[in-house]
Design a protein around this nucleic acid. Structure first.
Length: 920
RNA sequence: GCCCAGGUGGCGGAAUUGGUAGACGCGCUGGACUUAAAAUCCAGUGACCAUUUUGGUUGUGCGGGUUCAAGUCCCGCCCUGGGUACCA
């Protein structure tokens, strides 16, 4: 039999499906292992060869863990709500559910061809009401809880109500939108609407007037991570800042826990770093600056309290609530003009014009609490309203932004760090000795920071304070294709639906556009009301809602009474290995961790962190091919001859190119205008140029996994994707090398077959050489899989098969374990061989072979001998030789004598199993 | 600007703890088989020099350093990719 991969792959894919080979069930007698891929958004374009990279890696690891005796949970599903399906719906009128369903079918077909070991019975889709019921449920729970800073967890809102009834807002330490003060009597006197309004200020899911990223082109608000460089991540439309009443999640309440949690998980350095930056913890102090007229004290935040002696002015954000309080009558007009001007600038313009210095003087002065001097108060948009207190003390000598501002408006600059020259630029480094700084003089900056904060506290003008950059997540979207909010309004006040009314299903609408009066698309739904006739919220949830807890739902996907049963959760607990791209670093991976921590507070899940280990697969870029047309003709010239002519470089479909050689007939057929093209060849071939670009239709460099699987087989595809390079690195797809891997699989197949291609393995006992090859490979492959170095394991397999080939080994004792070893990489061919070997159960249930070190022990080692660090010759010595004997033997060696040449060696360095170096 | 990752043959990439740099694969060259092609197999393949052979010099982005020994460690710089951007 030839290696007929098409037949073999079809046969076993069917077998696995019919026998539910990869079905996972709670089994307390076995240790669990949960391997998860970031589930895909099923786009209309289908999968290209880059998408399955991570899935293949996780599949290899899942299969490996099964062989190692783990009960593996390896599910797959679809992140199915989202913009593209909706936009397609707007254009064509086709319901997004239909588009999504078609795309999912196509994805499933493509995934099936690669031979993944998913338990498809656990598939979830975020747009399925049975699924989003639990997204809505979690939202209601967030609505019903607030974050208590004392217990450091989410607490039921009833607890807060009780507290208000007894002591009002006094000494409450909870996370809020706005600081409120009221007594118990006041609270008890409030009407229902007022009470609800106050509670909304504390709820974890809350409705408030917030500065949002409004995208007019998409007609919706966006979260911070959905905006890149002032443009929407999807579609690249301009985004502006706007105050709107919006639903938000109080993610910021969890900032500290999200930061601390990073210490307990094994994520890549770069990813943890990204999250740390996004959370942006900074430690410093809040300090009150008195104004000269005494009307108001301005609270500022600083991380450099040590530089307070150098604070020569203050700056307020244009939106700061201090602005009207400190603006003098004389300056009123100027200030208003400035505020008007800044309001008009979009976020985009502000970004493009960073460095452009604008500002206005308020007319008021504050008193620097350390120097006692009067300092002017300015307004400028380089101070952000949303961070810290929206007001700063400016230390131009030691902050580059303050410096630029001071230079521009000619404000005083006072250096307070010894030796810093601030005539040209500020000195921002946190090092040096303090001068001109009263009681801080002579201290090092590192001592001065805490000393200054201590003084601030002693003077009772401020406190130590930690600030975070992380903002709350804006949760409402003015769109159709998302989860409806389980919220209704009674007299304008928001109330959650009862659990029994979930799921609240997405209604039908006539068009997927906003209503004529600017309401979201759900405003078109007929009878979008509760049974009692109260109107239901018109926004829907954002994309990250459905993806925030899907890993929990996989544990118990068909449970319709709970998000997850206690039993399932306590068994599967958390994701042991999560594989996906870095693009989710500041979106999904923050929201998911937040969501998990919230559910942890409620006792629904038992682990504090959802994803124990996370591996980022790199992007696969496209490798484009070019042809060169001589200008003004339909003549194409081969790459190395083109310099003699004026040519135009054109993209050519990579599918009509083989090893950079153009298939001229296929090229002519590719496009009608090339029908009668002529070619200038080199050595009888047309050689194309190439370059690395994004894999995209418009570069004609998209390679489809189905085509590769059809031509070479899924096993070849899987192994080649791994062989391309390290998993985490970005690399270009280049079909050119794939023959090598395919050749390997044919060689592997041939090990089991005789000259006539009949299956033939020998029952003879293996000899030492053969055992050595096997056990060496077991060791190497196991180590490589454990450290996710799949490219080197593929190499190890190639070496192994080549060596067995040289040994003409066809013994069961060697080949059967090798088959098990290879099965996670190439499941189809190994399953076939496993059965040809006489096994009746799937190879999935085999046991990973153990490496027996005894076969690897060498009795001698060939030492490289170097003189002054340069390699000269090799000498074979016993493994267990001691240093003295080894040295003597080497020095007596004829070659060594030649190099020593009568001199006395100064030193002999003997490193067991490594090297011998003689210094002369 | 700041933070992170990376830079090794014609190409993708190995080198896990400082110890024979270039594993494995592609491509290329030559050979075997064949009427021929494909497939398969064998040999060679960093550069330079020398040669009948043994060989020598050089070589991991650039410039220094530590060491018997540096792709790997230290200092300074350049380039590429990713993140972030007035975060006080």
């Amino acid at each position: 039999m030839e290696y007929n991969f098409r037949e073999i792959e079809k046969k076993w894919q069917k077998y696995w499906d019919e026998n539910k080979t990869f079905k996972a069930e709670v089994n307390k007698s076995k240790p669990k292992y949960y391997v998860l891929d970031m589930f895909p958004y099923p786009s209309g374009a289908g999968l290209h060869v880059g998408h399955p990279l991570g899935y293949i890696a996780s599949d290899i690891y899942s299969r490996y863990k099964r062989l190692k005796g783990f009960n593996v949970l390896h599910p797959m599903g679809y992140d199915a709500f989202g913009l593209p399906a909706e936009q397609y719906a707007i254009q064509t009128g086709q319901h997004p559910a239909i588009t999504t369903d078609n795309n999912i079918k196509r994805y499933r077909e493509q995934l099936n061809k690669i031979g993944f070991s998913y338990d498809w019975d656990r598939e979830v889709r975020t747009c399925d009401p049975e699924y989003y019921k639990w997204t809505q449920w979690a939202f209601i729970q967030m609505f019903k809880h607030y974050y208590d800073n004392v217990t450091e967890r989410a607490e039921p809102i009833e607890k807060l109500i009780k507290r208000f009834e007894q002591q009002g807002s006094k000494s409450l330490n909870a996370v809020f939108t706005e600081e409120l003060e009221f007594t118990a009597e006041e609270w008890n006197g409030y009407n229902e609407a007022k009470k609800q309004e106050i509670l909304l200020n504390y709820r974890i899911a809350y409705l408030a007037d917030t500065m949002v990223n409004w995208c007019p082109a998409l007609g919706t608000v966006l979260a911070n991570d959905e905006v890149k460089d002032g443009l929407s991540e999807r579609g690249g439309h301009p985004v502006e800042q706007k105050i709107m009443k919006q639903w938000s999640l109080r993610v910021s309440a969890y900032a500290n826990r999200l930061l601390e949690g990073l210490n307990d998980i094994e994520w890549s350095e770069s990813l943890t770093e990204m999250q740390k930056n996004w959370i942006g913890k900074s430690e410093g102090a809040e300090v009150y600056f008195k104004t000269v007229d005494g009307g108001v004290d301005i609270l500022i935040f600083t991380t450099r309290a040590d530089t307070m002696f150098g604070a020569t002015f203050m700056v307020l954000a244009p939106e700061s609530h201090y602005v009207p309080l400190v603006t003098s009558v004389d300056q009123q007009d100027e200030v208003e003009a400035y505020l008007e001007a800044t309001k008009k600038r979009t976020e985009r313009e502000r970004m493009a014009e960073t460095g452009k210095i604008t500002g206005v003087f308020t007319g008021s002065y504050a008193i620097n609490p350390f120097t006692g001097k009067e300092i002017p108060i300015w307004i400028s948009d380089y101070v952000l309203a949303g961070y810290g207190t929206g007001a700063i003390m400016a230390v131009p000598a030691h902050d580059s932004r303050d410096y630029a501002f001071a230079k521009h408006f000619d404000l005083p600059i006072v250096s307070i760090i010894k030796g810093s020259d601030v005539s040209k630029e500020s000195y921002d480094a946190k090092e040096g000795k303090m001068v001109n700084s009263g009681f801080l003089d002579g201290m090092d900056v590192k001592q001065a920071i805490p000393a200054a904060i201590e003084e601030v506290e002693k003077m009772q003008i401020g406190n130590r304070k930690v600030n975070f950059r992380l903002r709350d997540a804006i949760f409402g979207r003015q769109r159709y294709w998302g989860e409806p909010f389980p919220i209704y309004y009674k007299d304008g006040t928001a109330y959650p639906l009862e659990d029994k009314d979930l799921p609240l299903e997405l209604p039908e609408v006539d068009k997927y556009l906003p209503t004529e009066d600017g309401q979201p698309p759900l405003g078109r739904a007929e009878n979008w009301k509760t049974k009692d006739g109260y109107p239901i919220e018109l926004s829907t949830m954002p994309g990250f809602a459905g993806s925030s807890a899907y890993y929990i739902r996989y544990m118990d996907p068909r449970n319709n009474t709970e998000l997850v049963s206690k039993e399932a959760n306590e068994y599967w607990r958390d994701v042991d290995l999560y594989i996906g791209g870095t693009e989710h670093a500041t979106g999904h991976l923050i929201y998911s961790r937040f969501w998990n921590k919230f559910l942890y507070d409620l006792g629904i899940v038992c682990e504090k962190e959802p994803f124990k280990k996370l591996v980022n697969q790199g992007m696969i870029q496209g490798r484009s091919n070019y042809v060169y047309r001589i200008n003004g003709t339909n003549k194409f010239i081969s790459l190395n001859l083109k310099d003699k002519h004026e040519t135009t470089e054109l993209h050519v479909d990579v599918n009509v190119v083989n090893n950079d050689m153009l298939d001229i007939e296929a090229f002519k057929k590719w496009r009608p205008e090339f029908n009668d093209a002529e070619f200038i060849l080199e050595d009888g071939k047309y050689i194309c140029g190439w370059g690395i670009e994004k894999m995209s239709k418009r570069y004609y460099n998209v390679v489809n996994p189905d085509d590769i699987a059809e031509k070479y087989g899924a096993d070849t595809l899987r192994m080649y994707e791994m062989f391309l390079g390290p998993l985490e690195m970005s690399k270009p797809w280049d079909t050119n090398g794939i023959d090598g891997v395919h050749k390997f699989l044919r060689k592997f197949w041939r090990l089991f077959h005789d000259e006539q291609n009949n299956f033939a393995i020998s029952e003879e006992k293996a000899n030492n050489d053969e055992l050595k090859v096997l056990h060496k490979t077991i060791k190497k492959v196991q180590e490589d899989i454990e450290r996710f170095s799949f490219n080197t394991s593929v190499s190890a397999f190639m070496i192994c098969v080549n060596e067995l080939n040289d040994l003409k080994c066809n013994k069961r004792e060697i080949l059967e374990p090798l088959t098990i070893l290879l099965t996670s990489f190439a499941p189809h061919i190994t399953e076939e061989i496993w059965h040809l070997c006489g096994n009746t159960e799937s190879i999935t249930y085999a046991e990973f072979p153990k490496c027996e070190e005894k076969y690897l022990v060498e009795s001698t080692f060939e030492y490289p001998v170097s003189f002054n660090g340069k390699m000269r010759f090799k000498i074979k010595l016993p493994m267990d030789i001691d240093a003295k004997t080894a040295e003597q033997q080497v020095l007596d060696h004829e070659m060594a004598q030649k190099w020593i040449d009568g001199k006395t060696p100064k030193k002999v360095i003997f490193v067991p199993k490594k090297i011998i170096n003689i210094v002369i």
